[in-house]
């Protein structure tokens, strides 16, 4: 379970302060699948970075499975990143000129896993994302969707309990994006993985059970989705209409 309370993140731009996050409180249960939406600069990516232990808040509390994150040092945070969290990026961030297998191996390398186990676990992760036959392809020989699958396999290889994705479909066409979302749904249902992703696209967000809307560093809406869309559903003509209020149950 993830809990954040009164989270504040301040960036200094010259003399002025910018509140990227301004008093954000949020609780995410294990096994939830959730989308974070909001316009550019609303603080989505900052929130994701803090949830992923890639950044630290200026003020506020962050507990993961009851454990406080604020007082942890660099090495402890690295350990959390390596064991509890898988992170997927918009730009995939694969190592160039490196095979899919070796990209997926990377987290295990830093976790001191023995050479033989490493390969087996990386292969399993690649099979999970449907790339069991492309393990030796270099990252630049793979399509965008395949690259993002490799990135997801890399995020999964250490068996984390939380998968965080910052605009995972942002660089993909809508068909490939839907495939990635389908993969997320499968991982959420079959493995009980907590999944949080940021998206601009209401249609993509509509595939989760919960949508959180951020504006100016504050949560302005936090709703449960009564009937999440199944992956492969046709994209409606009226995209905005997808998130119609009557389909969603207002939180509290």
């Amino acid at each position: 379970m993830i809990e954040v309370e009164n989270l504040i993140k301040v960036y200094r731009m010259g003399t002025s302060k910018v509140f990227a996050l301004n008093d954000v409180s949020l609780k995410v249960e294990d096994g939830e699948m959730m989308a974070i939406m909001g316009p550019s600069g609303s603080g989505k990516s900052t929130l994701m970075a803090i949830l992923g232990c890639l950044d630290i808040p200026t003020r506020g509390a962050y507990r993961m499975d009851g454990e406080s994150m604020e007082k942890m040092n660099d090495n402890q945070l690295a350990h959390i990143r390596s064991h509890k969290i898988g992170f997927v990026f918009q730009q995939f961030n694969l190592l160039p000129r490196t095979s899919a297998l070796e990209n997926v191996l990377l987290p295990l390398l830093y976790d001191g896993v023995k050479g033989k186990d490493r390969k087996a676990r990386a292969m399993t992760a690649l099979e999970t994302v449907g790339l069991g036959d492309r393990t030796q392809h270099k990252s630049n020989q793979l399509s965008g969707g395949e690259q993002q699958r490799v990135a997801i396999a890399r995020a999964l290889v250490n068996n984390p309990s939380i998968l965080l994705a910052d605009e995972p479909t942002g660089n993909l066409d809508s068909h490939t994006g839907a495939e990635i979302v389908g993969l997320f749904q499968r991982l959420n249902r079959e493995k009980g993985l907590t999944i949080i992703y940021v998206t601009h696209d209401p249609f993509i967000a509509r595939h989760t059970g919960r949508i959180v809307q951020l504006e100016d560093g504050k949560i302005v809406r936090d709703v449960h989705v009564k009937k999440p869309l199944e992956a492969g559903s046709p994209r409606p003509d009226d995209i905005i209409g997808v998130v119609k209020v009557e389909d969603l149950a207002l939180e509290n």
Partner: peptide, 16 residues
């Protein structure tokens, strides 16, 4: 720099 960021994101410690 980005590569270093990624290595850290997947769990590489400072000393590594």
């Amino acid at each position: 720099t980005r590569e270093i960021g990624l290595r850290k994101a997947v769990g590489a410690r400072r000393n590594v």
